[in-house]
């Protein structure tokens, strides 16, 4: 049985608790949360040790792994403390606030046999997993161009009270939203060699951007564009859409459906020449326990699996998430340069 501690009991912490609490090889023994009201409630209803200080929790609770679901600006120091104590770490996204911090953590992790994962759930969505498989197979030939878009109705007015509305605490559309969109590009097509024409635009927020767009350029001749807007009320839920154009065809995908256009039939995948539509019902697989979406359970079960089997080559590792941090920083620098 793996002993787990959760640090930060907000929206994601609660979701992770619910999923891990039903895992047959996990026992959540500790939760750390700054809110006194929440701690009182946890003590009253759950049989766990409740802490207000994560260092104390890590020192006392005899854990195997921690889940970090705190504001982004605290990730680095908590990760450092956890890995110093030889704990496996699952951290919410994004990884760290700056690329330099991320690099330091990666260096620190070297030679430590610890499973590390960042909560980029798109990597565990069945449609995007399928698109990845098709791209790796070369189903649409050499990829030449793409669009990766993400929209949502998360911020429709200026909210000064939340950490999510302030860039310096890791809020804003870039860290909170665009990170998913950029990670999806990196997952499917790799890290761009250069970003250009970047824009970080305010719509409602006064301390952070609400829209991010940028062009990605690759040394192999591929290029693409990301467009992220979290102030678009025409989307009921956060929505990712990727369009990928290759020499042999094209793929358009969201979390529920993908369409693939092929110049020639692909018998192995049962695709006709021309358009082929596949719905998530065609290949969705159930999970042992569902909260908010299959991908949330799949990513945590995968994390536990990696610990149990000693797999260090994690699909959404810190090293992968560092690439997204680096790209976000490049976009911000590019946007600042352009605006000044």
């Amino acid at each position: 049985m793996l002993r787990a501690g959760i640090i930060g009991f907000g929206r994601m912490g609660i979701t992770h608790f619910s999923i891990f609490n039903t895992h047959p090889s996990v026992k959540i023994t500790a939760v750390c949360e700054p809110s006194a009201a929440m701690r009182t409630m946890l003590n009253k209803y759950l049989d766990i040790n409740v802490f207000s200080d994560y260092q104390e929790m890590i020192a006392e609770a005899m854990l195997d792994f921690v889940v970090i679901s705190t504001p982004t600006d605290s990730h680095s120091e908590i990760i450092k403390c956890a890995t110093d104590n030889d704990l496996h770490v699952f951290s919410e996204k994004p990884f760290a606030l700056t690329a330099a911090e991320g690099k330091k953590i990666l260096k620190h992790l070297k030679n430590k046999n610890l499973v590390n994962q960042v909560g980029y759930v798109n990597r565990f969505n069945e449609v995007f997993m399928e698109v990845k498989r098709l791209l790796d197979e070369g189903a649409i030939g050499e990829v030449k161009n793409f669009h990766s878009e993400m929209y949502g109705a998360t911020v429709l007015k200026d909210s000064k009270s939340s950490w999510r509305a302030k860039r310096k605490t890791g809020g804003g559309c870039m860290y909170e939203f665009a990170s998913h969109c950029i990670d999806l590009v990196i997952y499917l097509l790799g890290k761009p060699d250069k970003v250009m024409g970047s824009i970080m635009q305010r719509i409602y927020s006064s301390d952070a951007e609400d829209l991010v767009s940028s062009s990605f350029v690759y040394a192999n001749g591929c290029s693409g564009r990301i467009m992220v807007n979290w102030s678009d009320e025409t989307f009921r839920k956060p929505t990712n859409i990727v369009t990928i154009f290759g020499t042999k065809g094209k793929i358009v995908a969201d979390k529920h459906t993908y369409k693939i256009y092929l110049k020639e039939p692909n018998h192995n995948n049962r695709f006709h020449k021309g358009w082929n539509t596949r719905y998530i019902t065609d290949f969705a697989k159930s999970v042992r326990f569902y909260v908010r979406g299959n991908e949330f359970t799949r990513q945590l079960d995968y994390f536990v699996d990696c610990i149990e089997k000693g797999h260090m080559n994690n699909i959404s590792s810190f090293a992968e998430a560092y690439k997204t941090d680096a790209v976000m920083e490049e976009i911000a620098n590019d946007a600042n340069r352009l605006s000044s």
């Binding site: 907000g10 809110s35 009201a37 929440m38 999510r164 009921r236």
Partner: peptide, 15 residues
């Protein structure tokens, strides 16, 4: 739930 989801993101659960 969607009615509460954004409020929770903005103000926390108790808020």
């Amino acid at each position: 739930a969607h009615k509460y989801a954004n409020a929770v993101a903005e103000k926390g659960i108790f808020g």
